[in-house]
Design a protein around this nucleic acid. Structure first.
Ligand code: MN
Ligand code: MN
Ligand code: ZN
Ligand code: ZN
Lengths: 167, 167
DNA sequence: CCCAACAAGATAATCATTCTCAATTAATCA
DNA sequence: TGATTAATTGAGAATGATTATCTTGTTGGG
């Protein structure tokens, strides 16, 4: 999939009766230049734009990010912080999944074409059309394990009951 | 994994310094008797209990459900309705994933041990400890497709940019 | 049975996200 | 290129799920 330019974005928007605005273009730009593995929340996106001297209202941020996710330009991630994060939607072979530490929220991406392939097969078998598939793996990261998790339970702590293949 | 009884639940709670209460027991009971494929939101859970003549305050519902998810007794699902859903956590071989229609929110469960196995391998390779892995597949269901999706865009509509294996 | 710690219930507070509405602007077309 | 019109923005209010607070009730250990 070719990266969007102002023109291709405009074409795609107009084809649906929507408009290319400076705000939408700038938002896309931020995501296109985001380092691999980074994800932005609505507020983080706003801060990024502010620092660039291109302030955009939060309302517009939310609206744009939602529209672009629905268009398939962005991917909406439900990780573990109480708010959504977004990243550029990159189909195969850049499609990837996430593992998140429930202790510190550290997030690591990983590729696995096989999962996509299996999902596609499963989905089509049921007569559905696949839009996206995200495997979210909740874990305890090495640092948390090293620090003796789950000893200091109280405030932020999670599950001991791990899933395993008892084949 | 053996289904919980009042006793095993009590043991597990007490081992962490928590207590077995009638509320927690009733909540577990609801989930244990929920038909396969059903998921409850906090409010739905409250309604269910109310109908049974066992009213529990929403505060307690939220607290219990969160605690039990962290203990690994329940699984927290981020599907597509703006609120969380819960189901009983059933490890292998009952572990499963979900496909959701972005048009009508219809949710279908499917099993796939291979995904769990691959996640486990991936996670351990990075030195993490796996707690849970959920593949959420966003789709368009057959009914929506049959009705000509995505013709009537406006209000509830989603992405055309589908992912595919262009192998 | 008694006490201290934990938990429930009622309600207020948070906080991410959505909505409202007046003012602005992009796309279309004469 | 200028008028027209619907889409979009920005500011702030509103919403709604979830969490926090506080008082009263319970549980579990001694
Ligand atoms: Mn964040
Ligand atoms: Mn629901
Ligand atoms: Zn961690
Ligand atoms: Zn549907």
């Amino acid at each position: 999939m070719i990266p969007y330019t102002a023109n291709t974005l405009k074409a795609e928007l107009n084809s649906r009766g929507w408009r290319l605005t400076p705000q939408r273009e700038k938002i896309l730009h931020v995501f296109q230049n985001l380092p691999r593995g980074d994800h932005l929340s609505a507020e983080e996106l706003q801060h990024t734009l502010e620092e660039r001297g291109e302030p955009i209202s939060l309302s517009t941020i939310y609206r744009s990010v939602k529209l672009m996710a629905r268009m398939g330009i962005l991917r909406e991630l439900e990780l573990a912080e109480g708010h959504k994060h977004y990243e550029l939607h990159r189909p195969h072979p850049h499609h990837h999944h996430h593992m998140v530490c429930v202790q510190c929220n550290k997030t690591v991406e990983f590729n696995n074409d096989s999962i996509l392939k299996q999902s596609l097969r499963q989905v089509e078998k049921e007569g559905f059309q696949l839009i996206d598939c995200q495997l979210t793996v909740t874990t305890i990261c090495p640092e948390a394990l090293r620090m003796g998790w789950p000893s200091g339970l109280p405030s932020n702590w999670a599950c001991t009951r791990v899933i395993s293949e008892d084949k």
